[in-house]
Structure formats: structure tokens, C-alpha cells
């Protein structure tokens, strides 16, 4: 199986601080990979580097679409990375709070549609058709994430768990083949976590690869096929959930050791 995301010796320095230290990572088609590590290990920095929000100071990131060629993506802007097929959510929810739930999803369709200013003003048949498609596709995603009842609600008025799911829905609207989830279960109650769990599995079954940062170990161990562990910007372990659970380095990073 060929990897769809290849990260090669990725480094990120903030002044004298090395936040990421020659990190390697690979994700294959249709697998769920978890990235874990103590707070401040550099997990979110890693996300920001591969999605173009930060410009990494060293190393390369390659993306290989299912039916395409391997392409280097570091140095691209976030919107270009998204267009290449890698979408993400944020650790602290970043919805467009004053827009309705449906419109939030519709924003995700932006990069897959192309109505121009003139098209918007004259509203020719092409634009009308495209607009209708945007609405239909967005509604379909809302049904999938279980928010079809709150179509016209303002995003800010949604309950917390629903906001998390809406953010995932918005990322799905960009038609990614790789989805990056930054702590999707943070702050969720057990029932919301269960719903999230089901959603992630159904996405994997559709063939989407998922990389998730998560602190909820139950979720991580039950979902992921492989786990990467980071500490102080370095990769300290990788392997299946069983291997990781018994890895002394990981236990040391999380719990510390005597002496």
C-alpha cells in the first residue's frame, strides 16, 4: 500500500526553540492514525506545519492523491493545501459563528466551486445550478453528521458537541481524502464521544484516511490502526495500540519515572 501523506524529517524552529525535531510520519489509504503526546509536545504545531499555516524550517511534506502523483506541499498556502485534498479541524473550535449551520458547510464547498463576481451578479444558469448543488451537497453532509434539524440555526447557538461535528462537516465539504482532526473529543461528554466515534468509523469505511490528535486514550486505542507518540518535538514511538501501550518510553513520557 502506498502512503498518501509522507512527512520527511520535518522541523520547525521558533527562534531558539525547536518545536518539531526531524519528524517522520506516513499515512496510508483508509487508515486511522493517532498522534499522541503530553501537552506541549508539538502536536498542534505539526498540524499547522503540514497544513501550511506555519512554514516549516526544515524537511518536506508530500501528498499523494488516490489517483494522482506524489507532490510536495510544504510552502503552499493553507487554502492550496486544502484544495489538494487535506482538510482539518481546529483544537479550539473555529466556526464562522455568525453564519448559519448550513452556510458554514457551504463555505467548505468554496474551493470546489467557481462562480465569479460576474456570475454572482448576472446569475446565469450555470451559477444557479452550481448554487443549487452547493446547497444540496451541504445539506447531505449535514444529514451525515446528524445536524439536519439545525440547518438555519446560527453556528454559535449549537451545543458544544454539535459544534465539533459541524467543524468536521465543514472540513468534509472540501472533499478531502485525508482528514486531520485536532482533539475532536476534547470537552465532550461520553455520549457525544460515542457519536463522534461512530462518525469517524463511518468516514474510514468510506475510504477516507484520518489523522487525529487526541487525549482521550479510550478513543485513540479503539479507533486507530497505528499510533505515533511525540514528546518535546521528537517522535519517541510508533506502532499498533498494543505496542504503544506497553512501550516503556511512552509510559515514561506520560507518567514520568522514579529517578
Amino acid at each position: 500500500m502506498k502512503p498518501i501523506l509522507t512527512v520527511d524529517k520535518l522541523s520547525m524552529d521558533f527562534g531558539g526553540l525547536r518545536a518539531l525535531d526531524r519528524l517522520d510520519l506516513e499515512i496510508n489509504t483508509g487508515e486511522i492514525v493517532a498522534l499522541i503526546g503530553p501537552n506541549g509536545a508539538g502536536k498542534s504545531t505539526f498540524f499547522n506545519c503540514i497544513t501550511g499555516i506555519y512554514l516549516p524550517t526544515g524537511g518536506d511534506v508530500y501528498l499523494t492523491p488516490p489517483h494522482g502523483r506524489k507532490k510536495i506541499i510544504n510552502g503552499l498556502k493553507p487554502n492550496q493545501v486544502t484544495k489538494k485534498g487535506m482538510a482539518r479541524t481546529f483544537q479550539n473550535i473555529r466556526l464562522f459563528t455568525e453564519m448559519t449551520v448550513l452556510e458554514n458547510i457551504m463555505i467548505g464547498r468554496h474551493c470546489r466551486t467557481k462562480a465569479s463576481i460576474l456570475g454572482a451578479v448576472f446569475k446565469g444558469p450555470g451559477t444557479i445550478r452550481e448554487e443549487k448543488e452547493i446547497v444540496e451537497d451541504s445539506y447531505r453532509i449535514l444529514v451525515k453528521i446528524g445536524l439536519a434539524d439545525s440547518v438555519n440555526m446560527k453556528a454559535t447557538n449549537l451545543p458544544y458537541g454539535a459544534q465539533r461535528r459541524l467543524e468536521i462537516g465543514r472540513a468534509l465539504a472540501t472533499e478531502p481524502f485525508l482528514l486531520l482532526l485536532d482533539e475532536p473529543a476534547a470537552g465532550m461528554n461520553p455520549m457525544e464521544t460515542k457519536e463522534l466515534d461512530d462518525l469517524i468509523i463511518s468516514l474510514r469505511d468510506e475510504g477516507m484516511a484520518i489523522l487525529l490528535i487526541e487525549h482521550d486514550m479510550k478513543l485513540v486505542m479503539s479507533l486507530s490502526s497505528r499510533i505515533y507518540v511525540m514528546d518535546y518535538g521528537k517522535k519517541i514511538a510508533q506502532g499498533t495500540p498494543v505496542e504503544i501501550r506497553n512501550n516503556p518510553k511512552v509510559i515514561k513520557a506520560y507518567l514520568g519515572t522514579e529517578n
Binding site: F90, F96, A120, T174
Partner: peptide, 29 residues
């Protein structure tokens, strides 16, 4: 009126709401 309910108008509002999220959702800032 046409503009603000179009694909471009939505992009403007998204830009106003959250610049980083807007870019991450594939909108050219």
C-alpha cells in the same frame, strides 16, 4: 444583494468571522 448571497459574499463573511479558519477551508485570502 446578489453578491452578498453568492459564493463570494459568503467568502467575505467567512473572512470577517475567522481569517485562519477561512483559509484552512480553502478560501484564497
Amino acid at each position: 444583494n446578489r453578491l452578498q448571497h453568492s459564493r463570494i459574499g459568503r467568502a467575505w463573511i467567512a473572512l470577517r468571522e475567522d481569517e485562519i479558519a477561512c483559509q484552512a477551508m480553502g478560501i484564497d485570502k
